[in-house]
Design a protein around this nucleic acid. Sequence first.
DNA 1: CATGAATGAGTCTTCATTCAT
DNA 2: GATGAATGAAGACTCATTCAT
Lengths: 212, 212, 212, 212
Amino acid sequence: MDTATAALKPRKNPVQARSTVTVEALHTAAIQVLTREGLSRCTTTRIAERAGMSVGSVYQYYPNRDALLSAVLETHLEGVADAIEGASRAFNGKPIDEMAVGLVSAFLAAKLRDPQESKALYAVSADRGGPLLVQKMHKRMLSAIAAMLESAPDARFDDPAMTSAIAFSALVGPVRTLLDGYVEPGFEEGLESELVRLLTAYLGTHRLSPEV
Amino acid sequence: MDTATAALKPRKNPVQARSTVTVEALHTAAIQVLTREGLSRCTTTRIAERAGMSVGSVYQYYPNRDALLSAVLETHLEGVADAIEGASRAFNGKPIDEMAVGLVSAFLAAKLRDPQESKALYAVSADRGGPLLVQKMHKRMLSAIAAMLESAPDARFDDPAMTSAIAFSALVGPVRTLLDGYVEPGFEEGLESELVRLLTAYLGTHRLSPEV
Amino acid sequence: MDTATAALKPRKNPVQARSTVTVEALHTAAIQVLTREGLSRCTTTRIAERAGMSVGSVYQYYPNRDALLSAVLETHLEGVADAIEGASRAFNGKPIDEMAVGLVSAFLAAKLRDPQESKALYAVSADRGGPLLVQKMHKRMLSAIAAMLESAPDARFDDPAMTSAIAFSALVGPVRTLLDGYVEPGFEEGLESELVRLLTAYLGTHRLSPEV
Amino acid sequence: MDTATAALKPRKNPVQARSTVTVEALHTAAIQVLTREGLSRCTTTRIAERAGMSVGSVYQYYPNRDALLSAVLETHLEGVADAIEGASRAFNGKPIDEMAVGLVSAFLAAKLRDPQESKALYAVSADRGGPLLVQKMHKRMLSAIAAMLESAPDARFDDPAMTSAIAFSALVGPVRTLLDGYVEPGFEEGLESELVRLLTAYLGTHRLSPEV
DNA sequence: CATGAATGAGTCTTCATTCAT
DNA sequence: GATGAATGAAGACTCATTCAT
């Protein structure tokens, strides 16, 4: 771990039950404040207040505000990355159509489990330590997806890295649009099937033999 | 215009040449400061300084900081929306494959003309007045795209709103990934052709008759 | 100027009359707060308050608290160093007895001109940037004194650097004792003649020929 | 003992061995923290940590931070005062030249036994309860020195209080200059002999009859 | 008695905004 | 209109002290 990253690490491992509870309360509070007030008004005082504790306590668990927000973001991204990696492993060796369904399904499940959280954390990922974290997770996910793609029996990918990058961010875009609320009612209902269509079509362009 | 929106409007219409120049200087300065310092350190004083004027003068053109940043964002989005609308009009009645090429090309041209600007403004779009603005522009662009899609002679879209929403945000995702810098080298080179492939494949799923 | 020192420099040169007044008010206020409250309670807010301005204004003139206090200290030390250098020049080539009188007189005049100030600044010289400043001035003064000593017609100094260092700090000690208030009433009255006696005796140990 | 002074007294007399050990650990820790971090960062938590105990325990021995630091300072000053008083008693009735040697030697031994400690405590002596303590000890030492001077067979002091005050602080000055690090290399080596020279010369000005 | 998490007042510092010149 | 010094509210962070365990 380099020095820059070290500065964002939690101060103590939440081993004790008490700590775990406190840390979770902080994460929840941070997301709530982020949602209700926005990043610029997401202050340590407000987070502490919403978490039902004093400012000082926040600093018992995190060395600074950025570390707290980064931790929240990391936990979230970790969840998403795990989902993507899980799906990639689960659909290894499967036909690309199944991969498409599996990937979309896993991604949506992870991102829409707690939409508030997902939405709130977009702001954090743009700030300070955020980008690095996002980039790191991005790499993890793209590697997993690329590996899965290469295992497809019915397709051949010249540049799996590029394909996985495009495929993944093509999913990210619409989901973000949804979470950011830039959509008409009804969008969410059709989202999954439409993303499957999108991904299936895209991956299908690399199919080995034409469909019979 | 509701009161909330009114508060973000420029104080004066830049009718005089002088004003236009000043306003442009402010926008440029804002983007530079945003890029170099980040949103939280993008202060009125710093913007004024880089624009070669005094803080006081900034307030002659904008009632407050948010109004200035919103104006910069709006100008940018306006440009992108214009590009999308232009392309939609230009490819009206054309086959979907051409639409795909036209849309991708127009979008990339608009977004990558000044990557710094595009990147810097993501932060603004997440803060305060930003989301509303983005949503408004989003609607404009989706309407244009939907109208174009409906004019395609070789395809039939059951839900043009949904298709255009997915299509557009599927382009937005990868471009943002690029601008945010979450990519491996080489990504940018292949981006356009890959997006064309993506969009062509996606729109192609609504093709009326199978390719001959 | 190295980076460490640069951080303590005033933000703007007090060229304008207004600035000079403000800066002087700040220095005076700082000394008063230092005197009345001690270094640990000498906060930016209290200084600003005593100077009749707001905290923000303090930061218009100094980048931080340490810079303000350092500036006050530097001004003071500069005055003392000037006095010592002046005396050293004035008594160049004179007999050591006259040097002793001149040095004591100049030092006391400089240090006791504003006893409150002298006393208050002892705390600052121990803190942060203080020691460096003191050391720098110390060197300046010792050089001057050593040069003067070497010019004495009636004495010969094997190690002028050492002699001047001891001579000077032997004056500093009693003056500090006085300013710190560790003395019985009546101490101040006899101080000058006693320091002259001390210094004369000490320098006299290097006299070339016995008095006739 | 007045109320102000009472507030700084240790809570319990270290009668038990355990307590003595703990208190000593605290003193040592305080000096280390003071040396490494400076007065303003010399916090109770840090002291406790370095002493290998919890903050709470510190408050078992001292009512507050100032009391702890004052106790450390007092112990140190007590040692110096003891040394001075010892020397004064030892050289009672001796010639002034021997007194000079004895005084310098005792003072240097006491102050330079643990230079880190001596240096670190200068900060404490300037803050809060410090000055009172220093003043008290100063009086003790000056009384002892004055008494010794009056016993000299070969000199006559009109104002022993004044002479002892000057003599003592003329020693204090150079030693502090050394400890504060404002000196050129080589200063420490010649310090003792030079101080003896200084003091001998100064006391010699009160010699009864000229040397034979 | 020891522990160390919790508290919250108090510091430094920044910055949007105003307004006298 | 332009200027930029002044304002002061607000934010991040620290730390002496307490008290439940």
